[in-house]
Structure formats: C-alpha cells, structure tokens
Design a protein around this nucleic acid. Structure first.
Lengths: 342, 342
DNA sequence: AGTATAAATACAATCGGTTGCATTATATAT
DNA sequence: ATATATAATGCAACCGATTGTATTTATACT
C-alpha cells in the first residue's frame, strides 16, 4: 500500500541510484544527459506516478507559465471567440490562462493588473476597459519587463504589441456600403472615442462621406456604451431628428439590433426607410429580421495570434520586436438590413 | 538607485532587526505577534515594495488559492454569466480562477482535469461535456481529496456538491404553459439524455403531458447537440410530420430560435400555428420575433453560489457536508412566442 | 525577590526543483 | 599507453515563505 505522499525527483533518483539533478535534467530533455538514462528516468517517473511540482519549479526558475488576460466583459460572442483562440494556443504551449474582467471599469482593470502582477504572470494580454484614460497601472509591468500585449481595444504604447483589425478601413467599408445602397444621411452609433477602435471607425466613416461628397454632421454621431440602451437611445434620437437619417452604422451588433428593433416598433421599415450595418458578426445579427449586415470580426483568429505572439516572445531570449503591431482582416458581410433593391 | 531585485521577508526582517519568521507571521496577522510589531512590519513591507512570493508560499503550504473551472463552451450568455459570478466571489476571497473549455469533448475534459490536477488547483468546478459518460477522470481528484463541484450539467457522485436548477420542474412548467395555451401536440428538442439536466427536463415534459391527459409520443422528442443545426433539423422534421406539432419546447434558446426561424421561413405562424418555449433566457430570445418565451436561468447567481460553496469548503477544516446539492429557482418568462389569444 | 505563566520572538528544518561548477566516465588522438 | 577532449553525472547552494519547537521577554502571583 503506497502512502498518499507525492513522488518527487528525489524518490526517482533514489530508485535509480542517481542524483536528483540528473533526474531534473533528464525530465526536461537536457542535452547533457545520456539518452538511455533519460529513458529510464522517464519510465520510472511514469511508473511511480510522478508529477512535477510547479511551485518548486516556479520558485527557482522565476517563471510561472501563466498568462493573464484582462477583458472588459465576458458577454459577447466575439470575446468568447477570442478567449477560445487564446486558450487553444496557450494550452498547446502548456501555458495557463488566468482570465479576469474589468467590467469596463478602469479601476477594476488596475486592480486586475495588480493581482496578476502579484501572481507573477509571465505576460499579460489586455483589451481596455471603456473608461480607461490613465494608463499608469501598466507601468509597473513594463518597468519589471513583463510583456504586455493589447488586443482589440488597444493602447499604443511604445513597448507593446497590438493585435487588432484595421478599424479605419472597416468603418470606411461599412459606410461606403451604405452610401452605395443609396443612403444620403448616415447615423453612427459609436463608443468612447478614447478607445482608438471607435475613433478609427469614426474616422473611416468620415472619409467615406467625404469620398462620396457628403458633409460630416456631428449631430449624426452618438457616443454610447454600445449596450442595448445605446440602441434605443439612438432610435429615440433618430425619430426626433428633423432630417431623419436613412442609414445607421453601429459599432457593434448589440446596439445595432436594439436600435433596429426600436425603429421597427416606431413603424419604420428596414432597410427601405433606414438601412443598417453593425459590427462584430454576432449570432444575433443572423436572428434579427431583416438579418443585419455587419463587419466580420475574426475573434478566434485574433485570440490565437495574440497568444502566439506573446508566447513566442516569452520563449525567445532576445526580447526584441515585441513592438510591432498585427492587423487582421475584417470584411463586410452584406445582409438584408442594408440591401436596397436598386 | 534600488536594484531590480524583489524584496523578501528576509529583507524586511533585516531592516527591522527581527527574524523572518516573525515577519511571515506578522504579515498574516498571526495572534502571537505583538500588535506594534505587526504594524511596523506592515509599514516596512509597504515602504520597501514587498510582494509575497506565491510559489514559495504554495510550495510550503501546499495550497495554491487557485480554483479550476471546466466548462463545455464559452459561447453562451449563460456561461458568461456563470463565470462572472464565480469570478466575483473568487476575487473577493482572493482565489484565482483557471478556466478551460472541454469543447464538449469528454477526452479534452479529462485532459483539462489532468492539467489542473498537475497545477495543484485547490478545487475544481465542472459543467460536463456533451458526451462524457465515463467519469473515471474525476477519480484521481477524489482520491487525492481535491474537492469537486458540479454545476449546471451535473453528475451525481457521492462525494460532490451539485449546484443546479430544478430541471424537472422547469421542464414541467414550460410544457404546462404550452398546454395551457391550448397546445395538444408538443415537440421537444433536447440534448444528450446522459446529461441529467436534459433527462430531467424531459421527465418534467412527460409529467405535464400526463397531467393534462395526453399520451407521450416518442416521435415528438429529438435528441440533438442543441446548436443552430439542431433547430433547423427539428424544423425539417416537424414540417414532415403527418400530425404536425402545435408547440415546441426546446432545451435552449439557440435551438429554439433557429427552429422558429426555419418554421417561419416555411410559412408557419408563431405562435398561432406553433407556439414556442425555449430555455436559458439568452439575449437572443428578446430579439427574435415574436419574442421567445423561455426559462430564466440564473447564471450569475449560480456561479456565485457554486464558487462560494467551494471556497467555504476549502476554508474550513472539517471537510464534511460537501455532499449536499443546491437547487436554484428558475421560472418561466412568458413572451409572445407562446401566448395565444384565448 | 522568586517563581509560575503567558506572550513574543527566534531558530532551523522544510517544501521540491534548478543550476553553476566540480568531478568522473568515455571517446579520440597521438 | 598516455594525453586531451568530450560527454555524463553529482554536489550543494539556492529560490522565499512556512511552521514546530525552543528560547527569550514581559506579566502575574505568592
């Protein structure tokens, strides 16, 4: 009857009449250990039911094989997809993920960074909270040389990689599409412009208007939290406008859908009276009637790429080129909500 | 200029001319340390920028303050809510969460258990994968005395707590509601019946039929993966049936919505021709037209309660009463998809 | 003052891998 | 056979907090 105690490398060493150091090196395939010895070590370890003690290892090697992920909220299909992608890559590289939500609060975001810092994560991936303006809570990471990567809602810091889409282009394409469908007066529902994702989309929106010879009208842009209420607020505003918009480009599907629903309730026809384009390609966009045109946002891919980038960086000695950014494709999906019979 | 090295309790001890043991005890508010000394220790620790080294601590104390969570998929609003609830409670109790997905595969589930086991999590919370039948991968946890808690898709193991809703009752209520709206022939879209959640709902469905004097008809039950395809498959089947159902009770909103959409495309009217009740109260249920009646599933609450239960258990010495189960309320939300003008 | 008792602190072993350096075994060259 | 290079292994310190036990200090009681 074996006792309940854990098997250590010392037990293996004793069993094989070799030193613990050799066992340690053998287990991690160190080049200076004889192949036959390695084999014996591996076999004995297996037999004895050995499992490495992460803490002892971490304590000594000062690495945790853990990556922290801070996201605003775990409530969108997009975020789920991103996390799935990250998890896949991290798992394969035997890294663990610690996920926490900022709940769109800069304060909680700072707290999360602190917690992860204390837990000695090897690196951190962040999508910024809605109201983060002060970014000093990231400084201690950079100071300690803990790699920091931003995705989606990024922050252009000199020492950080960003993984994102070309938001300006996406905003341009969405708006252009509406214009091509004959819209002359396009409303834009967006988020906090301190988040560059939204600022960029707005910029694309403006460019498209310009290219089609239309004046930019500030009254057509509504800054919101991009939740359901944002959509109904927008609808209310739209209904009250003297020259009513004939198109809406929303910076996420949630607000687009809720706005569409509200307008429908007010008796407007989609897309005849108002055409819609959303953002994210959430499942919801294929449920609403008419189906919502939207920008396909490659979440899974983004997660994979972000995690891969960070892990590559962690696994290489030379800590260079962590500074470049990665831009993913994000194309328009045209559905009934924006297609007018021309 | 301070060096980049971390501050340890030895540094604090040296600074204050006391022993490291006293510092260690002082920092965790041990009763046998003088209050004044504690104060000095705390202050010095703060000044010197001390942060505790989790690994050294874990190595010695054999606890990690980490809880593993294994879920089938991170793609539903419900799961997001559960995780949010868990995260909240865990954070407050200064536990970390390691989340991973089984992707509905029993094999990956077993792998995840193994990984978390190796990472020495203090406890594990699991919602079972779709096709898990063999549950031997949980045995090593129980053998090592690592507490295991199931939520939502539970498994009735003698030594485990389960947190769930009364699925039988929910199934009964959903079906009863349809019957009260005049349905005589109710179709049921469900998941793998080895998952008790679905078996229980089916059982409730049967009871309701019986109470209303209707015969149970096996042809009216379709076992699916509860994804979008499940809905369209069900719709196809329904359209092909000789005596067409006039009501559908689906075990999640995703399949309900996709089935509803398909039937609508086939020219059926909801709820006049076919009334619908879903399950989960996903946001999607309030987007589809007509809005989907559904069972409100208190995800956030479930997450909180599950985490609280596990943490309480971890924090108490006497490892008793980890065996009782917790049943949450889940009530029907009646919306247009099932309300017939009577 | 002298002893019993309690409170506060210190000592030192321990947790289990990791790693620089020393040492021994083996292979190759002369 | 001897010298030299190389491969393989061992030694022992180390990472930093924890904790049982011993020791010192403060307090209480005759």
């Amino acid at each position: 009857m074996k006792s309940n105690k854990e098997v250590t490398i010392y037990d293996i060493a004793a069993e094989l009449n070799i030193s613990a150091a050799t066992v340690s090196r053998g287990l991690k395939d160190h080049p200076s250990i004889n192949k036959k010895t390695k084999k014996r070590i591996r076999e004995t370890a297996l037999e004895m039911g050995y499992r490495s003690n992460t803490f002892a290892s971490n304590l000594r090697s000062k690495r945790t094989n853990t990556i922290g992920v801070i996201i605003p909220r775990l409530n969108s299909n997009f975020m789920s997809a991103v996390l799935s992608g990250m998890e896949k890559v991290a798992n394969e590289a035997s890294y663990n993920l610690i996920i926490s939500q900022s709940l769109e609060s800069a304060q909680k975001e700072a707290l999360n960074v602190q917690t992860m810092f204390n837990n000695r994560v090897d690196g951190i991936m962040v999508s910024l909270a809605y109201d983060t303006t002060d970014t000093s809570h990231f400084e201690l990471l950079l100071k300690k040389g803990i790699p920091l990567l931003f995705f989606d809602r990024v922050l252009e810091l000199p020492q950080c990689t960003c993984v994102m889409i070309d938001n300006r282009k996406a905003g341009y394409e969405a708006t252009k599409h509406l214009l091509e469908q004959g819209c002359k007066n396009i409303f834009h529902i967006t988020g906090q412009l301190t988040r560059t994702v939204y600022a960029e989309r707005l910029s694309g929106y403006k460019s498209a208007l310009q290219d089609f010879g239309l004046e930019y009208n500030e009254a057509n842009v509504l800054i919101t939290r991009l939740d359901e209420k944002a959509g109904t607020d927008a609808a209310e505003k739209i209904m009250a406008m003297s020259s009513r918009p004939d198109g809406v480009f929303a910076s996420n599907d949630t607000s687009a859908v809720s706005c569409m629903s509200a307008l429908k309730r007010s008796g407007l026809r989609i897309p005849e009276d108002v055409a819609f384009v959303g953002f994210n390609n959430d499942p919801i966009s294929r449920v609403i009637e008419p189906n919502l045109s939207t920008i396909n946002y490659p979440g899974f891919e983004m997660g994979q790429i972000a995690a891969q980038k960070l892990i590559n960086h962690l696994n290489t000695e030379n800590h260079i080129n962590m500074t470049d950014s990665i831009i993913l494709k994000a194309e328009l999906i045209s559905r009934a909500s924006s297609r007018r019979t021309l």
